[in-house]
């Protein structure tokens, strides 16, 4: 399953956003392409800029979250497809 990552601009993130991508790369095939089986939007804060222009099926992270939670949410979303 291919996952595409879309970041917000990163002006004042409340956590290290790259941690989400690093976890994703451990379990899935990740790119920055415009299309994939799932778009994962990574915002640095609750403002959620990464998800503002997202369309269709996507998953949005906007705070620090445990590795197993990230994997669980992605798998859950992929299974729904």
């Amino acid at each position: 399953m291919r996952i595409a990552v879309k970041y917000c601009g990163g002006c004042n993130p409340s956590y290290r956003r790259e941690e989400i991508e690093e976890v994703l790369r451990k379990y899935f095939q990740v790119s920055y392409a415009d299309s994939a089986d799932l778009i994962v939007c990574i915002s640095g804060c609750k403002k959620g800029c990464a998800a503002e222009r997202a369309r269709g099926e996507f998953l949005h992270f906007d705070e620090k979250i445990k590795e197993e939670e990230i994997v669980r949410k992605v798998k859950e979303k992929l299974l729904l497809k």
């Binding site: 004042n12 804060c45 609750k46 403002k47 959620g48 906007d62």
Partner: peptide, 15 residues
């Protein structure tokens, strides 16, 4: 810089 909460209501940026 406010955001949507799970309830659908919006709140301001806390910081």
């Amino acid at each position: 810089e406010g955001f949507r909460t799970p309830s659908g209501a919006y709140m301001p940026n806390q910081l």
